[in-house]
Design a protein around this nucleic acid. Structure first.
Lengths: 225, 225, 225, 225
DNA sequence: AATGAATGAGGGTTCATTCAT
DNA sequence: CATGAATGAACCCTCATTCAT
C-alpha cells in the first residue's frame, strides 16, 4: 500500500532484480556445495529474501536449476557464436587459423570464467541426473558443436585445415574445452600450471601435434617450455 | 594361542561377495540417478539385502561413495601404469610414438568402459562435493598426470617428441581423456560418432595437428579421414 | 531504520503459546514414560503440532529436555528464595524456627507439586545422563543449598539453632526434601501416608529428634563444623 | 565336543560366571550412561561375549535390567535385615538407640557403596519407567520400610523412642537414606562434605533435632500417629 | 552354548513446499 | 507480492533381536 498501485514499471524492475539476485545466490551455492546440499533456506538467506518468496519466482527448486541452465544457454558464447571469426571469412588467412584458434580459446576461457559458477553448478547435476541430461544437455553442447563444425568445414574449404573428419574433430576439440574446464576444477590450484601455459600447450598440440613431423624432416622450432 | 585368528573361510567369502554386491548396486544407482537421489533403501533393495546390512559394511552412505572411489583407484589403470610402454623403452621407436599413443588411448578406453559406471557415479559428486574433491580427486588425477609426465619426459629425451612443456601438455592430454569421457556421457548416443572415429581424430590432432604442416604454403597433402 | 524490529505481536504471542504447549506436552510424556521412551512423534501429537514444528522451537530432542530444566531453574522457588523468612529477620523468634521450617516445607511441597511433572522428567535423566548432570545438576541444587546454608547460619547466630555443621546439615535437609519427593514417586500411592503426616513426622524429627531428650544432659558436644 | 558330554558341573560353573560377567558389565554401563544409551553391543563387548550370547542368558535387554534389580533385592541388606539390632533386643539400651542408628547408617552406607552402580542404574529407570516401577519398586522399598517400622515399634515399646507416627517416620527416615544417596550422585564431588560429616549431621538431626530444646520440657505431647 | 552377520521396525531429523498473515 | 512458521513425507541411521553356522 505504499504506492497507489500505479507505477508497475518500478515493480517490474524490482522483481527482475530480485530474480537475478536469487539466481546468482543459487548458482553460487550450487557451485560451492552442489545442488542437493544447498537448501532453499540457504538460497533464501543468500539472496536476502524469505524462503516463501522463492516460490513466487520459481515453482520448485528444480526449476531454479533449469533457470540457471536456461540463462547459460542464452549467455554470450552461443549467440555470439562460438566462432566469431566465421562471420568474417574474408579475413581468414593461413596465418589466421592458428591465431584465430588462440583467440577462440581465450574467448571460451573468458566465457568459462564468467560463467564458471553456473557451469560448475550445472555440470555436476547434468552428470547425475539422467532426466535433466536428456532434456537439456544438448542445449549446451549443440551450439558449440554445430558452430565448430561449421567453422571447421569452412576452413577446410579454404584449405586452411586438413580434410578431417569434421564431426569427430569437433567433438575432440570440444572434449578439450570441457576437459580443460573440469581439470581446473578438480586439480588443486597450486598444482596447476597457469592458464597461459595450458593455452600454449593446447595450441601447440592442436596445430603442431606433439611429435616432430617425423614423417618428414621437420625443422620447425620447438616451443620450449 | 590367541585365536584361530581367522573366521570361517566360507563366511569371509560370503561377506566379500556381499560387499561387491553392495558396491555394484550402489555404483549403478549413483550413476543412474546420482548420489543424492539414491536412497539407502534403494541400494539395499538393489543389492538384495536389508537396509541395516549396508551398515555392517559401510559406516555411512558417504563411505559407500568413498569405497567406490577407492576401488577405482585400485583398479587396473593406475597400477598397470598409465604408460605400459615406459617399461620397454628398448622397443620405443619413432613410429612407435603414434602407435603407442593409439594403444594407450584404447587402454584408457577399456578402463573407462569397464569402470564407466563407477566413474560417472564419482565424477558428478567430485564436482559437487568440495570435501570429497579435496580428499580424493588427486588420487585419480595424480597417477595419470605423473605417469603421463614421466612418459612425455622420456620420449622427449628419446627425441620422439618436441621439447614441450611437460606439465602443461600432460594436463592438456588428460583433459582430452576426461573431456572425451564426459562428452560421451552428455551427448545423446545417436548423435555421437562411433569411438573409432573419435580415436582417429584424436590421434590425428595430437600428432599432426589440424593444420597442414606448413605454417606455410598450403600445399601439404591432407591426411583425409 | 533497520527494521520495525518486531514481528507482529500476534505472531509472537502465538509462538510463545506454542512453545509452552510443546514444553508441557514433552514434560508430561517424559515424566510418564521417560525421556527415551518418548518419541518426537509422541510429543508432536500430544502438543498437537507437526513433528517438524518441534524443530522450529528446539534444535534437538535433547534441547527440549534442557529447556524443561531451564524452566525449572527459573521457576519460583530459587528466585523467590528458598528461605523467604530470611528477608524478615526481625520477626524471627524462637518459636518461629519450627513454624518457619514448617511453612518452608509447605512452600517446597507446593513448588514440587506444581513442577512435579517436570522434576520427575528431569530427575531420571539427571541420574542417567552424565553430561546433563555435569552441566545442570548444580543449577537445581546450588540455589537450594546456598539458600539453606545462609538461613541456617543466620538462625544459629540468632541462637535459634545449635551451632551445627552448616554445609553438612544443609545437605542432610536437602536430602530429606529430595528423598521425600522420590519416595512419593516410587511408592504405590495407596501405601503412602498422606502428606500432612509426613510433614508432621519430618518436623518432629528435625526439631525434636526421635528419642526423648533424655538420656543425657546436653553435654554431648555439639559437632561444630 | 571337547568333553564327552560328561562333567556338566564345570559347564554350570562357567555359565554362572558368565552370567555374573554380563550382569556386572551391564550394571556398570547402565550406571555410567543410563539404560537406553547402553546398547547390547556395548554390553557384549564389555562382558567379552558375543552379542548373541546375551540372549542365551536373558530373553531381552529389559530382562537384564530386571535381573540386576532382582540381584539387588537378594543382596545383603534385605536379608541380613535392615535392622540387625532388632534381632538382639536384649542388647538394646537407651544409649544404644543412638549408637545403633549410627551403625545402621554405616551399614546402609556400606550397602550403598557396594551396590551403588546397580542402584544408580536401577533408580533412574525406576523413575522413568512406570511399568518397571509398578512391578518392582516395592521390592526395594518394602523390606526397608517394613524392617524400619518393626524396629521403630519395638524401640517405642522399649521407651527408647517417642511414641511417634511409625509409618510416617519410617518413610521420613527412608527418604533420608534415599536423599543422601541421590545427593551424592548429583552434587559435584568436590562440593560434598565427606561422609563422616554427613553421617554426624544426620544423627544429630535425627536425635537431637536442630534446635536447642528450648522450647520446653518434654511435656509437649508426643505427636501420636 | 557361542557366534556375529542379517534383519527391519522405528528413531530423530531435514527440508521442499504451503499458506495464513 | 513478501513473509516465515507449519507441515509431513522421506531420509539416514541405530539397535534389539534372530538365526544360520
Amino acid at each position: 500500500m505504499t504506492e497507489p498501485s500505479g507505477r508497475p514499471e518500478r515493480r517490474q524492475r524490482q522483481m527482475a532484480a530480485r530474480l537475478e539476485q536469487i539466481l546468482d545466490a543459487a548458482a553460487h551455492l550450487f557451485a560451492d556445495r552442489g545442488f542437493h546440499r544447498t537448501t532453499t533456506k540457504d538460497i533464501a538467506e543468500a539472496a536476502d529474501v524469505a524462503e516463501g518468496t522463492l516460490y513466487n519466482y520459481f515453482e520448485t527448486k528444480n526449476d531454479l536449476l533449469f533457470a540457471i541452465l536456461a540463462r547459460l544457454s542464452e549467455s554470450e558464447l552461443p549467440q555470439a557464436g562460438l566462432v566469431p571469426g566465421a562471420a568474417r571469412p574474408a579475413q581468414v588467412s593461413a596465418g589466421d587459423a592458428r591465431q584465430h584458434f588462440a583467440s577462440l580459446l581465450d574467448l571460451r576461457r573468458e566465457y568459462v570464467n564468467e560463467n564458471s559458477v553456473m557451469l560448475q553448478a550445472i555440470l555436476s547435476e547434468l552428470l547425475a541426473n539422467t532426466e535433466l541430461r536428456q532434456r537439456y544437455s544438448n542445449q549446451l553442447l549443440e551450439p558449440t558443436l554445430i558452430g565448430l563444425e561449421k567453422e571447421l568445414t569452412l576452413r577446410i574449404k579454404l584449405g586452411q585445415l586438413y580434410d578431417l573428419d569434421v564431426p569427430a574433430t569437433a567433438r575432440v576439440l570440444t572434449s578439450l574445452w570441457i576437459g580443460l574446464f573440469i581439470l581446473q576444477l578438480l586439480e588443486q590450484p597450486q598444482n596447476q600450471p597457469d592458464w597461459e601455459r595450458l593455452a600454449q600447450a593446447t595450441i601447440h598440440i592442436v596445430f603442431d601435434g606433439i611429435a616432430p613431423e617425423t614423417t618428414m624432416p621437420e625443422t620447425s622450432g620447438k616451443p620450449g617450455q
